[in-house]
Write a protein that binds this DNA or RNA. Structure first.
Lengths: 144, 144
DNA sequence: ATTAAATAGGATATATTTATCCGATATAAA
DNA sequence: TTTATATCGGATAAATATATCCTATTTAAT
C-alpha cells in the first residue's frame, strides 16, 4: 500500500506531534527508537517532510524536529503521504496504464473507484491530532 | 497498490480468458504485445499463475496458455492477486507493524478497516469473465 | 571565540523488484 | 524419427527502494 518510507514518515510525524504537544523537540535517534525504524533512513524522510512543510526542523544544539502546536490538528495524513509517495495511490491507474479515465478505462477502473475514493477521503480527513491522542491514551501503538 | 508483476498477471489473465473463450491458446509473445509488457518477465509471471492453478499451460508445438472455458466465470481477481502478491494488501498492517490487530492496533488500523474490506470484497467478487466481456465490447482496455 | 549538539546532504552499500538471456525439456505434426 | 514450436527454469542484469556512513553546516550555551 504505502512505501516503507511513507510508513516511517507517518509514524514519525505522529511521534513528533506527541512530543511537540508536550513542548519537546526530538532527534532522529529518539524517533527511530520510538517507531522502530532505521535512524539514518528516517532522517532522510524527515528532511522530505521538512521540505514539504509538514514538520519543522531546528538546527544546532537543543534543536530537533517539531510541529507547530496549532498545526497538529490541521495536518492530514494525505499531506504526509503526498510528501513521500506522491498521489499515485489514489490517482494512478490500478493496472498501471499511462492513460486511464472514464473515456479509456482499464479493466478495473470502475471497480476500484469506490475503494480509492474511500482511501482518499480517509487520508484527507484524518488528522495527526487524533492519531496522536490514540497513541497517548494507549489505544494504539507505534511499534510492536 | 499492486506490484508490476501483479498488474501484468491480471491483464494477462484477462487476455488469456478472452482467447480461451474463442478456443485459442496464446504465447507469452502474443500476451506481451496485447498488454504492453516485457515478454520474458511476463512469461515468469505466467509460470506462477500456472503453479497456482489460475491458468493452464500446454508445452510443445501448438501449445501455449489457456483457461478452461468453464473456469473463466469462476476465477476471481483475488486468486490472481494472491498468486502473485500474496494477501498482504488486505491482511498486512497499513503501517508495517509485525503485529497489528484489535488488541494491538497501529494508529491507522481502524481507519483502514473499511477501505481494506472494500478492496477485499471487490477482489473476491470480481470474475475474470466480467472483465473479459468489457474488453471484448470495447468498454475497457488492456493497454493505451 | 570555543565547544557541544544538532540537521543537511552527498556518496555509497544492500536488498528487492523488474527485466533479460539462454539452454533444457516437452510435444504435436510431418 | 525428425523438426518446429512451445513452456520451464536457472543465471544474470538493470532499476529502484531501502539503508548506512561520513562530512559540512548551523546554533545554543558557556
Amino acid at each position: 500500500m504505502f512505501s516503507k518510507a511513507c510508513e516511517y514518515g507517518i509514524k514519525a510525524s505522529i511521534f513528533i506531534a506527541i512530543s511537540s504537544s508536550e513542548g519537546k523537540r526530538v532527534t532522529p535517534k529518539q524517533i527511530a527508537e520510538e517507531i522502530n525504524s532505521p535512524q539514518a533512513f528516517t532522517a532522510k524522510i524527515l528532511q522530505a517532510l521538512v521540505k514539504h512543510n509538514v514538520i519543522n526542523s531546528v538546527k544546532g544544539a537543543y534543536g530537533g524536529f517539531e510541529i507547530e502546536k496549532n498545526d497538529i490538528s490541521k495536518i492530514k495524513l494525505a499531506q504526509i503521504v503526498n510528501a513521500i509517495d506522491g498521489d499515485k495511490i489514489y490517482r494512478g491507474c490500478g493496472l498501471g496504464l499511462e492513460i486511464c479515465d472514464e473515456n479509456h478505462p482499464c479493466p478495473v477502473h470502475d471497480k476500484f473507484k469506490s475503494v480509492r475514493t474511500d482511501l482518499q477521503n480517509m487520508l484527507e480527513s484524518t488528522t495527526l491530532e487524533e492519531l496522536a491522542i490514540n497513541i497517548k491514551s494507549g489505544a494504539s501503538f507505534l511499534k510492536v
